[in-house]
Nucleic acid binder design. Sequence first.
DNA 1: TTAAAATAATAAACAATGTTAATTATTTTT
DNA 2: AAAAATAATTAACATTGTTTATTATTTTAA
Lengths: 200, 200
Amino acid sequence: MTPNKELQEQRMRGYFKDATREILKGEGLKALSVRSVAERAGYSFATMYNYFRDLNELIFLCVNDFMEECETLVNEAGTEMEPGRDRLKVRVKAYISYFTQYPGIFELFFVEKMNDIGSKHPTARTIYEFSDRLFGEDVAALTGKLPDTEKINRDILGNLRHSVTGMLLFYNNRLQPGDYREFIAIALRQTELCLAPAYA
Amino acid sequence: MTPNKELQEQRMRGYFKDATREILKGEGLKALSVRSVAERAGYSFATMYNYFRDLNELIFLCVNDFMEECETLVNEAGTEMEPGRDRLKVRVKAYISYFTQYPGIFELFFVEKMNDIGSKHPTARTIYEFSDRLFGEDVAALTGKLPDTEKINRDILGNLRHSVTGMLLFYNNRLQPGDYREFIAIALRQTELCLAPAYA
DNA sequence: TTAAAATAATAAACAATGTTAATTATTTTT
DNA sequence: AAAAATAATTAACATTGTTTATTATTTTAA
């Protein structure tokens, strides 16, 4: 019987990745350490270095998983609705809800200071374009009949990306505004404002 | 001769504060440590604890200085212009320029994860309202003649606050977009979009 | 099947960090 | 000038990421 090294290694990596995901979703980046991950995975902290270059590599691998999870959640919001203004708001709300429920994941996506290598990583661009992918269809539904659609789309999606990220940053990291309901209300209002170029 | 304890203590605190400011402006938060501050101040790291509760207190004290510095810079931009759209853009540009020149200060203002006490600190609110103070006059000049001025002002200033912060976050922390000129161009374009409610 | 080789897991160690407690140096007061 | 108070520093501890040695295990070869 020849042992399946590939499978074994895959499993080991899985244990560490799962542990990392759980900690990030639960206690957040602050609680993440080589030792905390290893303990949850059931191995010594030194074992991690046999499967990953360092803690950062492990963190990077989680981003894709989280992105999928978030996308699924957003896609489950407003399924019965027509693409457009109202559905966009429902989807933005789901997006925001994900990142307020898991502030550690928000931190990981948008806040964590990476080294220069990390920022040049393709992941950085994928994150940058993440909201475009999620909200593109609804925006396109609003601008489809207009001339100069592409430019307007870029404007709107850009504004959405920046202002939603900004709001989440203030809410998650600075507790501004202090109340969640108020935060959501402002967020939806701002979402509407971002659509202005579609009605010009 | 009775020694002026007050003055002496004030000076000591000044040495540490200056050292902290210099490091934050130069190498950024990552390079800031009790030891690096103390070395630059010319004292042992333990001495810091005789004048400040901890490193966080020292950091907080710098925020106000930086805010003043930034405000001065912004106020020096477009002094000969009329309040309004064009001056706003010049001022936003100065604001952005400050926080890209000193990414460590941006981190300190908007990114650094504070403990709950820190986020409930009055400073958190001051930071939140900082851009409103800087850009309020120009926005008011645009909306002054409209009905429902206050509401529109809030909308515009909110959108400005969030989208400028979001853009800076992407640029400073994720190198998106990769080129500074492109970044500025997008930022100014987005600034204009934020003003849409004034022209409705 | 058992000895040798390869591999995997871990423990030990190091450097850097924030912080506190103990100690030394300095200044002030009596 | 000695005693008391204060200031500054050193020593120490706990926690972090990471690397280097050791130990345990598994695979291979005789």
